[in-house]
């Protein structure tokens, strides 16, 4: 489907580009937001990325998916905004994180209202370092393959699987901490 619309745009039908805007804008926004952590900046970055993609669509060789190529542009633009991918240590005890019981989180999680859940998730993701939360977004939200994430982020594919596993556990650990305090407050 992407290829059909790419051809249409390349043949001069600029309105056909709205297909890509409708299809990829939300995910592009989520990816940019994970890096810059500001909705205003993320919107600006997504807009610039679409314009850049439109300008260089003729150079797109179609040996990878359009989404991979486009998210690469979004990530590059976001990194230009924040200067570089911050990989500050997140002070999370990996041993503790590995022992997290998912069932417990799930049961507490389902009892909270949507807005509370959202707030705690947002807080937990903010505590993760930028690279980790970006990888989780690309893997779970965008459902990109490891090869695609490696291409987009420049992280070696061999390291990615372990990194995703660890980051997911870190996120559960942080979420559990937040949810526990929430339950204590409720009681």
């Amino acid at each position: 489907m992407d290829n059909l619309y790419i051809q249409k745009v390349l043949n001069g039908d600029c309105n056909a580009f709205s297909y890509f805007v409708n299809e990829y804008r939300d995910m592009a926004f989520a990816v940019a937001f994970r890096i810059v952590n500001s909705r205003e900046d993320a919107e600006e970055i997504v807009q610039d990325s679409f314009v850049k993609a439109f300008r260089s669509l003729g150079k797109f060789r179609q040996d990878s998916k359009f989404s991979t190529w486009f998210y690469r542009i979004v990530i590059n633009n976001s990194l230009t905004k924040v200067q570089r991918l911050k990989t500050r240590p997140d002070n999370i005890d990996l041993k503790k994180a590995e022992c997290i019981a998912v069932d417990e989180i799930e049961s507490v999680y389902s009892k909270l209202s949507r807005s509370d859940r959202r707030k705690h998730i947002e807080d937990a993701l903010n505590e993760l370092n930028m690279e980790d939360s970006l990888i989780l977004t690309l893997y779970y939200l965008n459902e990109n393959t490891l090869e695609e994430i490696a291409e987009m982020t420049g992280i070696k594919k061999e390291n990615l699987k372990m990194k995703i596993h660890r980051t997911r556990q870190k996120m559960f650990y942080l979420l559990e901490k937040k949810l526990k305090s929430e339950i204590k407050d409720l009681l």
């Binding site: 001069g12 600029c14 309105n15 580009f17 709205s18 805007v21 409708n22 804008r25 939300d26 926004f29 989520a30 937001f33 909705r39 205003e40 993320a42 919107e43 997504v46 807009q47 679409f50 314009v51 439109f54 300008r55 998912v102 989180i105 799930e106 999680y109 949507r114 859940r117 959202r118 998730i121 947002e122 993701l125 989780l136 977004t137 779970y140 939200l141 997911r168 996120m171 559960f172 979420l175």
Partner: peptide, 30 residues
């Protein structure tokens, strides 16, 4: 669970006219 959690984390857009503004830019570029 990770997928469910991350789905809840999608931020909301500020500008409701984002698509219109963007497509105007694309047409101008064209």
């Amino acid at each position: 669970l990770a997928r469910e959690v991350l789905n809840e984390s999608i931020p909301e857009w500020i500008n409701p006219d984002f698509n219109k503004i963007l497509m105007d830019k694309i047409r101008a570029e064209s």
